[in-house]
């Protein structure tokens, strides 16, 4: 994705978290953030996240680490093997202890948002990693 295009486009965001309450919290916070967002797609584990990525254009992934069936670390490993996927910005939304589980060295664009977070922190993190500005 060219940087110039990022400023114009509306984002399709994939929210991957096993807890529906957290998915709703993140989705609502993003919707209220005045960011240029088109679709917010939800997945409850890494496997479903990869399936959604195959079926939809995804510009940003907000990912939990601790998920059943396929966790976030495994999902990232699958993404690494796909040259198209590894360019998609990933914002890992997790508590402090899980950060150390995520190998970041060979990912192009990955960042962390620590829980707990405020709406402003989430908004800033999305802007920082995508380069988008307000809608």
């Amino acid at each position: 994705m060219q940087l110039a295009n990022r400023h114009k486009m509306k984002l399709n965001i994939l929210v991957t978290d096993d807890c529906s309450t957290v998915r709703l919290l993140i989705s609502k916070t993003i919707r209220l953030s005045d960011l240029p967002v088109d679709r917010i797609i939800e997945a409850e584990n890494g496997a479903e996240g990869l399936k959604q990525m195959a079926e939809n254009r995804v510009d940003l992934i907000l990912m939990d680490i601790n998920m059943p069936e396929m966790d976030g670390v495994t999902m990232l490993e699958h993404m690494r093997m796909n040259p198209e996927y590894r360019k998609i910005p990933v914002l890992v939304v997790t508590a402090e202890s899980n950060k150390q589980r995520v190998p970041t060295t060979d990912m192009d664009n990955i960042a962390f948002l620590s829980k707990p977070f405020t709406p402003q922190l989430l908004r800033d993190a999305v802007i920082n990693i995508t380069g988008v500005t307000n809608s």
Binding site: C19, S20, T21, V22, L24, L25, N66, T94, A95, E96, S97, N98, S114, K115, P116
Partner: peptide, 20 residues
């Protein structure tokens, strides 16, 4: 479901920040 999810998420966050 939302109540249970909220209570689970809070303990998840607190524990995740205390565990280090």
């Amino acid at each position: 479901e939302q109540k249970e999810g909220a209570l689970c998420e809070i303990v998840n966050i607190i524990c995740g920040n205390v565990a280090p």
